[in-house]
Simulated scan of single mutants.
Amino acid sequence: MKVLLLENVQGLGKKGEIVEVKDGYGQNFLIAKGKAQHATNEVINKYKAQVRKQQEIEALEIAELHQMKNVLEQLMLVLHKKVGANDTLFGSITKEEIAAEIEKQTKMKIDKKHLEIPVAIKHLGQFQVLIKLGHGIHTTLNVEVKAQG
């Protein structure tokens, strides 16, 4: 019996492969557990269409992320904070503040989990923040901290 694997099966094959298995194993284990489907032309064509659609969606996401990357690279984010002696901030600049300011200035939502602040921002000056957008696309955001008032 030929089956189309819907997930990786150790010792048999990877997701999307069509493999030949014994009838009992295919029917009673693979198909019964939802790990495979009987490999008819209809099932194979439906799977290929589903894979194509997923690839198109992924290509659109990547194009969108590249566009966001270009906008973020051009952006100079300016944050105004209260300062004490020696131009030291009260507290530090957080990922939440940076994400909120990005959304305020560009209308783009960036999850704070995607931001990496290499050195804690505790004084006035210019800093760089790494943003991991997804699909292996990274960019650097310039942040400038100025005294409030």
Rank of each mutant, 00 (worst) to 15 (best):
136 G>A: 03
116 E>Q: 14
125 G>K: 06
107 K>P: 04
134 G>Y: 05
105 Q>N: 14
136 G>W: 01
128 Q>M: 07
94 T>K: 02
107 K>R: 13
129 V>N: 04
95 K>Y: 00
132 K>Q: 14
143 V>G: 03
91 G>F: 10
110 I>Q: 10
115 L>N: 06
116 E>H: 14
144 E>F: 01
139 T>P: 02
94 T>G: 00
112 K>T: 08
91 G>S: 05
112 K>R: 15
141 L>D: 04
145 V>A: 01
145 V>C: 00
125 G>S: 10
133 L>V: 08
146 K>I: 08
127 F>D: 02
105 Q>F: 09
93 I>W: 01
102 I>H: 08
107 K>G: 05
139 T>A: 06
100 A>Y: 07
141 L>H: 04
95 K>M: 04
113 K>M: 10
93 I>N: 00
115 L>Y: 09
96 E>F: 01
146 K>E: 12
118 P>I: 11
122 K>S: 10
104 K>T: 09
111 D>Q: 10
133 L>D: 13
131 I>G: 00
122 K>I: 10
104 K>P: 00
96 E>N: 12
117 I>G: 08
97 E>P: 02
124 L>P: 00
131 I>K: 00
92 S>N: 09
124 L>N: 00
146 K>M: 14
123 H>I: 00
90 F>Y: 15
144 E>K: 13
132 K>R: 15
116 E>K: 15
130 L>V: 11
142 N>G: 00
141 L>S: 05
109 K>F: 09
102 I>Q: 05
92 S>K: 03
121 I>P: 11
103 E>Y: 15
122 K>W: 01
146 K>A: 10
108 M>S: 05
112 K>Y: 07
136 G>C: 04
107 K>T: 14
101 E>S: 15
98 I>T: 06
141 L>W: 06
112 K>H: 09
132 K>G: 03
119 V>C: 03
116 E>F: 15
92 S>Q: 07
101 E>K: 15
106 T>E: 10
122 K>R: 13
